[in-house]
Amino acid sequence: MVDFGFGLVPSSRINLDLFDSEKYEQLAEMEPDVRICMACGSCTAVCTAGKFVPTSLREAIEDIKNAKPDKALQMLESCQLCGKCSMVCPRGINTRHLILSISKVYSEK
């Protein structure tokens, strides 16, 4: 193989064809609230950890739906389970249970 000093650049595009619906259904069965997020961002706005380390439940849900579960887990790694997000969620999502469910389902490889 020849080294030209440059090569193919990986695509950063979301590929929804890679979405694992089986695993997602597993999560939705455990915590159906994952389906009703409107991506309003209230949870992230009040997140204790998010001001210091990248932490966002809104983004984690988005990442799961966009076939990037590893990124979702990273987004929740520093969560302190303080529960502030559950207070502000307009749709009353059980955020603590959702966070724990995401970690459970997607940590299993």
Partner: peptide, 14 residues
């Protein structure tokens, strides 16, 4: 610019 060529190549590859 050589530093950008990988991006040019990737478009053609696509």
């Amino acid at each position: 610019i050589k530093g950008n060529r990988g991006y040019s190549l990737s478009n053609t590859h696509k």
